[in-house]
Amino acid sequence: MPKSNKPIVWGLFAAGGTVTAFITPVLVVLTLLAAAGHVPDLLTYDRLHAFAAHWIGKAVLFGIVFLSLWHAAHRLRITLHDFGIRGDALVAVVVYLFAAAGSVASAVTLLRI
C-alpha cells in the first residue's frame, strides 16, 4: 500500500480553513456594517470596484472564494462520513462539483469586471 494522495484535497482544505477562519468573520462584519449604512471610506463602491478590476484584486478574491468553497465541500464530505453515510465516491463528486461550479462562476464574474 503506497502513501496516500489525500494531501491534494487536504492541503486545499487546510488552506481554505485558514482563510475561512481569518477572512470570513471580517467579511461578515463589513457586510453588516454596509447593510446598516456605515460604509468606511476605504470600502466605498468605487474603491472596491477598482480593487476587483485590478488583476491582483481578482486573484485575491478568486483565491478566497475558491479556497472557502473547497473547504466547505471537504468539510461536508467528512461530516457526511461521520454521520455514517456510506458512498464516499458519490458524495465527493457532488460536493467538489459544487465547489468547482462556484469557483468557475466567481472566475467568470471577476473576469467581466
Binding site: M1, S4, K6
Partner: peptide
C-alpha cells in the same frame, strides 16, 4: 515511519473529531 502513517488507512482516515 511515513511509509506506514501517511497511507489512506492511517493518518488520512482521521476526520478530526
Amino acid at each position: 515511519r511515513q511509509e506506514i502513517i501517511a497511507r489512506d488507512e492511517a493518518v488520512w482516515q482521521c476526520s478530526f473529531v
